[in-house]
Amino acid sequence: MDSRYDMRFTGSGGQGVILASIILAEAAVISGLHTAQSQSYGPEARGGLCRAEVIISKDEILYPRIITPTFLLALTQSSLDKYSQSISKDCIVVADSSLTVPDSLDPSRVVCLPILETASEKVGKAMTANVVAVGAINSLLGLFDDASLEEAVRRHIPAGTEELNLKALHAGMELVS
């Protein structure tokens, strides 16, 4: 991976973008990297726009929040429209395929992936979209080895859902090849 990613995960409350950021932070810890994860709180965490942040770095992280993201995940149109306005020039944007990419975004920086559709159709459960996204992001950025990421997923999902979530993770990985 590159030496540091400042990643912002956005969507609507209930899509699990916070958990997606936590899984990647956990994978960073398992892989011996530095990480700092935080999230937006308040009414927006219970519906409406939702935002989580994770920094993954080979060096110590001092200031733990993100000033300009170098990676953005958007799972809803409103989050893509809003958060794509404050990203760095070379930021990688992953947007769900169902969204319309705003004209202001350089199309070469945007990767459109059918995350929501994969979760509901291929995995068979819409609520696994966040884990599908985690798999796709990892393949895209080459962050962690599969075993570390799988372990991170296992640590943060309810008991009894391992099979479903690992299926989602691998379905996500396969979206990027």
Partner: peptide
């Protein structure tokens, strides 16, 4: 809140 809500290794 900076430290309370922060996750780190």
């Amino acid at each position: 809140e900076i430290v309370g809500h922060l996750r780190e290794g």
